[in-house]
Simulated scan of single mutants.
Amino acid sequence: MTSTLLSALSRVLASVDALRNLRALYALLASFCFAGLLVAMAQSALAREQNLLSALWLGLGLAVAFFGVNATGLMLMDQARGRLVRDPQDALADALRSGHRVLLALLVALALAGAVVLALAGLLWATRWPFVGAPLLAVVLPAGVLALGGISFVLVVLVGPLAGPAVWAGRRQVIGFLRERLRHGLPETALLMSAVYLMTALATAAVSFVVVSGSRLMAGLAIVGAGVELPARQLLAGVMGLGPRGFGASGMPLEGGSLGLAALIGGGVVFAIALVLPTLVWLRGCCAVYLALTEPE
């Protein structure tokens, strides 16, 4: 048992090789950038009080991000299995055919969780009744805390991370797989997913250090060394995820004309890359956990 668990952990730790999967990196980066563009269009339409058009752009943006993540997951599953990684266009076509199964599994899990929440809400409402209210609350309160905490834990370490990999690996009965892991393998799954979350946190910290230190030094070099007439805050705004509209909403005017706009766009590219890299590690780790649980070496 110990050797099997150590083998699974080593398989999960090998997920850092996701950063070498350039096809997956390209697919995820393109989908995030396109989704961000659609969300910006939704914000612009909302500012013009075009609510229906704003909802349309927002829905398209969410769909692009969802199917982009699924296409990336399919390529990372190929990598985790040691197979030839499919082309991004083939992965997108496969994601369009199978992505609804991931969404369905998540919706079923959320519906079951919602049923428990409604039941607890009904019991809490019943505590207002005379005579039985106080004893009922004494029972419902601890039971509700444990139930809601347990549901949150299961969603974070089991349903959310493994529903996608189960579909990407070709499994048909996703809900059955999740139920089986919940009944007989939750501690092992939680341990492996803890390693994935730790790796993702470390990757996020490393990327954040590179982006923050590099942007500070670049801003100083541009302003002091090259004499670029832009305020440091504007040079760094794109790196922090602010676009032209977001920067304007912060109360600062956009200076420099085309030069200032180019700085925001360039910084936005850095922000997108910084967002994509930890996401790649997390998706690859989820694939590794699924394979370690279902296809032990």
Rank of each mutant, 00 (worst) to 15 (best):
S3D: 14
V12M: 08
D17V: 09
R20G: 12
N21D: 09
L22V: 09
A27E: 02
A30P: 03
G36N: 13
L38Q: 07
A47K: 08
L52R: 12
S54D: 05
A55K: 09
L56H: 06
G59I: 05
A65S: 12
A71T: 06
G73R: 13
A80Q: 07
A80D: 02
L84W: 11
R86L: 11
Q89G: 14
D90F: 14
L96S: 02
L96K: 08
R97A: 14
S98L: 06
S98R: 10
V108E: 00
A113M: 11
V116Y: 06
L120W: 12
L124Y: 15
W125F: 12
W129N: 08
V132P: 06
G133Q: 04
V139E: 01
V140G: 02
P142E: 02
R172Y: 08
R172P: 00
R172D: 11
Q173W: 03
G176S: 07
R181K: 14
L186F: 01
P187Q: 11
A195W: 00
V196I: 05
V210W: 09
R216D: 15
L217Q: 14
L221N: 02
V224K: 13
G225W: 11
A226E: 13
V228K: 04
V228A: 10
G238V: 04
M240E: 13
R245W: 11
A249N: 10
G266M: 03
G266H: 04
L277A: 01
L277D: 04
T279W: 14
L283V: 13
A288I: 13
Y290S: 09
A292Q: 03
E295G: 09
